[in-house]
């Protein structure tokens, strides 16, 4: 079994009003925050034959449903195999 953690954020070129609002709020609290990007955090548990296969499946899931490539990009934060 694999556990993948992915982060989905708006592409850098796209204005992120939610992130900007969070940064502004942090600055109001006197934190010197230059920028904040908001996004989604997903944890996916799934079966795959090995790590390469797991990566392939993950890419497919992102392309088909999880990520809208018009405005979003994703990063794999971690991908770990574990015994079930």
């Amino acid at each position: 079994m694999f556990l993948a953690v992915i982060a989905i954020t708006l592409r850098k070129s796209i204005l992120d009003p939610q992130g900007s609002m969070i940064a502004k709020s942090l600055r109001n609290l006197d934190f010197r925050v230059e920028d904040t990007r908001a996004g989604k955090h997903l944890e996916l548990t799934f079966r795959a034959s090995d790590e390469n296969h797991a990566r392939e499946l993950l890419q497919e899931m992102c392309a088909k449903l999880l990520v809208n490539s018009v405005t979003e990009e994703y990063r794999i934060i971690s991908l770990n195999a574990y015994e079930d």
């Binding site: 796209i14 009003p17 939610q18 609002m21 809208n68 018009v70 405005t71």
Partner: peptide
């Protein structure tokens, strides 16, 4: 294209 959150949030 796509529909983004309103600028006012």
């Amino acid at each position: 294209g796509t529909l983004m959150p309103n600028k006012s949030l």
